[in-house]
Simulated scan of single mutants.
Amino acid sequence: MTDRATTFESERKRHALELFAGLPRHYDRVGAVLSFGQDPRWRQTMVAAVDAGSDERVLDVATGTGLVAQELVRRYGCSVVGLDQSAAMLEVARARVAADPALAQRVSLTVGEAERLPFDDGAFDHLTFTYLLRYVDDPAATLRELARVVRPGGRVASLEFAVPAATLWRALWRFYVRAGLPALGGLVSREWRETGRFLARSIPEFYARHPREEVARLWSEAGIDPVHVRPMSLGGGVVMWGTRADGRAESA
C-alpha cells in the first residue's frame, strides 16, 4: 500500500471515529427518531435473515452500542462476538451487556476493524454488519474479509441506508436528508447536527460510486451467493443477505 493510500485511509478512519465519539449516549434513541422509528424494524429484518441456531456463533461487525448483538441473543440464544472500531460506542455496548445476565453470558465485545478481522478463516457460523460500507475505503476487499471468517454455508446479513428508486420518494428523501436530518440532529446536539450533514453527503455519494446492483455483485464476488436484496421503508433502507459459498472468494 502506498503512503498516499495509507494517509487517505487514516483520514477516513479518523473522521469516522471523531464523528461517533460524541454520539453514544443518545445514539439508539436519536437514531430511531431520525429514521421515523424504522431503524429498529430494519434491524429485526436483518437479524431474521440470519436464522442462527442456539449453539452457533455469530460475529456482529460494526456492533456500535450492541443493539444487533442484543437482538441476535434474544431471538436465537446464540453466542455473539461484537466488534467495532469505536471504543466510545463499545463502552455503551458493554454497559448494555453488563446490565443483562443473558447477554453477559453470550456476548463478548472487542475493538477491531472490518478490513482486518482478528479471527481465523471460518471462525464463525454467521456474520452481521450494519451501516459499515460507507466508512471503508475498499468495499470489495472488506466484503472478502468479512466472508473469510464465515464457514461455508453460513449466512451473512447487512443493513444500510439507501436511496429510494421511485422518483417521488427519492425527491422527498433528498429533501429530508439535506434539510431535515441536520435540523433535527441540531435539536439534540452539535455532534448530531454534524452527523446529519455527514449522512446527507455520504449516503448519495456512496451509491453514486456503488449502485445497489454493484454492491450485490461485490457480495457474490466475495463468495456470498445467492444474494437477496430487500428495500425497506420505500427504499430508505436496504437489508441484504446471502450464504457463504464453498471455496475461496475471488482474489483482488
Results as ranks from 00 to 15, higher is better:
Phe124Ile: 12
Thr142Met: 09
Tyr131Cys: 03
Leu168Glu: 08
Leu103Lys: 01
Ala98Gly: 12
Ala98Phe: 12
Val73Asp: 01
Arg178Lys: 10
Val92Lys: 15
Asp137Gln: 13
Arg193Ile: 03
Glu160Lys: 06
Asp84Ala: 07
Arg174Leu: 12
Ala165Val: 13
Arg116Phe: 08
Gly82Tyr: 08
Gln85Asp: 02
Gln70Pro: 00
Ser54Asp: 15
Gly122Glu: 15
Ala166Ile: 07
Arg151Asp: 09
Val107Cys: 08
Ala99Phe: 10
Phe119Cys: 10
Leu181Gly: 03
Pro101Gln: 06
Ala95Cys: 04
Asp120Val: 12
Arg74Trp: 10
Tyr76Arg: 03
Gly122Pro: 02
Leu72Ser: 07
Gly64Trp: 06
Asp121Asn: 13
Ser158Phe: 08
Arg106Pro: 08
Glu113Ile: 06
Gln105Trp: 01
Ala98Pro: 12
Pro182Thr: 00
Arg116Ser: 06
His126Glu: 04
Leu127Met: 11
Thr142Ile: 11
Ala102Pro: 01
Asp55Cys: 09
Val92Leu: 11
Val68Pro: 01
Val58Ile: 12
Ala179Asp: 06
Phe124Arg: 11
Ser189Val: 01
Met89Gly: 04
Phe124Lys: 13
Val156Asn: 02
Leu168Val: 14
Asp84Asn: 07
Ser54Glu: 15
Glu160Ala: 04
Ala98Arg: 15
Val188Ser: 10
Gly153Lys: 08
Arg148Phe: 03
Gln105Met: 00
Leu132Phe: 10
Arg57Val: 13
Ala166Cys: 04
Leu181Thr: 07
Leu83Tyr: 02
Val107Trp: 05
Ala104Ile: 07
Ala140Lys: 09
Ala157Thr: 07
Val97Thr: 08
Val58Tyr: 06
Tyr76Thr: 03
Val58Met: 11
Glu56Ile: 05
Val80Arg: 07
Arg116Tyr: 03
Arg148Ile: 05
Thr110Asp: 15
Gly153Tyr: 07
Pro152Cys: 09
Ala69Tyr: 01
His126Arg: 06
Ala179Cys: 11
Glu115Phe: 13
Gly66Met: 13
Leu72Gln: 06
Arg106Ile: 14
Leu59Thr: 03
Val92Arg: 15
Gly180Cys: 13
Asp60Ala: 06
Phe175Gln: 12
Val81Gln: 11
Arg75Trp: 05
Val81Ile: 10
Pro118Cys: 14
Asp60His: 05
Asp137Trp: 00
Gln70Tyr: 00
Val61Tyr: 14
Ser54Arg: 15
Asp138Cys: 11
Leu67Phe: 02
Ala114Trp: 11
Thr63Gly: 12
Arg75Ile: 01
His126Val: 02
Gly185Gln: 05
Ala141Gly: 08
Leu132Asp: 06
Val68Tyr: 01
Val188Ala: 13
Gly64His: 14
Arg190Glu: 14
